[in-house]
């Protein structure tokens, strides 16, 4: 293959990672932005989405496309409910103190991973894609489902943007983010907002997990990579800035595709981590962040 076909393949691969990363990181960014909680268990919610998709596609009868659609709805809902419960039972009792919530979410991460190990098992299990077609280009073939993931991600992120900027729920979230005390003074029940945002963020991670599982497989440790990458994206983009997160996800995803294709995947991780270090030194609020409060 010449340079351009490989470059095209790199961009396609990069777009797929960017798409999944953007959805996952959006959830993380939202939780941090509104609640100031660094959610280390975010990767575990991603994994639970994938595992949930396996359960739904295995035990619900019906045509593959419909069953997968059901998984896309059921798995994130269940994960969101679980996260909401964790917020009420744990995070709220810690008064959302930044230090305590980091430790608490680390604990949550272990509980969820070990729970998946106990109930789902240690094996990687495949989930069939809702449809399978292969696109044959002159130089190589490509999975049609992977391209569908990119399209689905674009739609989802557009909906997310509309929701935050054009709905009442979004308004309440933004109000709580900019000043919880004033929001409370205006009659907003911030406890409910926090529980809702934590659940919603986890649901987004789970949705990304569902989308990715036909490409990879459901595996109880699959959340660790996405967690690290999401943190990288959120830090570079600016903690709490959704726009920054999306731009950073696109940037990291595409450079992941290109660098790992032409050099090595390890180099991508080295460069991304280095970039985080530089951002933290020279622009701690991130590329699109509003500066430390």
């Amino acid at each position: 293959m010449g340079f351009w076909p490989i470059f095209l393949l790199a961009l396609m691969e990069g777009l797929v990672s960017a798409a999944v990363l953007a959805i996952t990181a959006a959830g993380l960014s939202l939780v941090f932005g509104v609640m100031r909680v660094v959610n280390v268990a975010h990767g575990a919610f991603f994994m639970l989405g994938a595992v949930g998709a396996w359960f739904v596609t295995t035990y619900v009868p019906g045509p593959p496309a419909l069953v997968f659609l059901a998984a896309m709805i059921l798995a994130p809902l269940c994960v969101a409910a679980l996260a909401g419960l964790a917020d009420i039972a744990v995070l709220k009792r810690l008064n959302y103190s930044p230090d305590a919530t980091i430790v608490a979410t680390i604990g949550l991460l272990y509980i969820l991973e070990q729970g998946a190990l106990s109930f789902f098992g240690p094996s990687a299990r495949p989930v069939p894609a809702p449809f399978s077609f292969r696109i044959q280009l002159p130089w190589f073939g490509y999975s049609g489902y992977k391209l569908a993931v990119v399209v689905a991600a674009v739609v989802l992120l557009a909906v997310l943007w509309l929701m935050i900027n054009r709905t009442k729920a979004g308004l309440v979230m933004r109000a709580t983010q900019s000043d919880p005390e004033i929001a409370r003074a205006f009659g907003i029940n911030t406890d409910k907002v926090y529980a809702g945002v934590f659940a919603f963020g986890a649901g987004l991670a789970a949705l990304a997990g569902v989308l990715v599982v036909p490409i990879q497989q459901a595996y109880y440790l699959m959340g660790e990579g996405p967690l690290l990458m999401s943190f990288i994206v959120v830090i570079i983009g600016g903690l709490g800035s959704l726009r920054g997160t999306l731009v950073a996800a696109l940037f990291i995803g595409l450079s992941d595709g290109v660098i790992s294709m032409f050099f090595s995947p390890t180099l991508t991780e080295i460069l991304a981590t280095l970039l985080v270090a530089f951002v933290l030194i020279f622009r701690p609020q991130g590329l699109f962040g509003r500066g430390a409060a």
Binding site: M1, L9, S17, F140, Q216, M222
Partner: peptide, 9 residues
């Protein structure tokens, strides 16, 4: 590793 297409190029 979870993604392999990049190696096949």
């Amino acid at each position: 590793e979870t993604s392999f297409t990049r190696y096949f190029a």
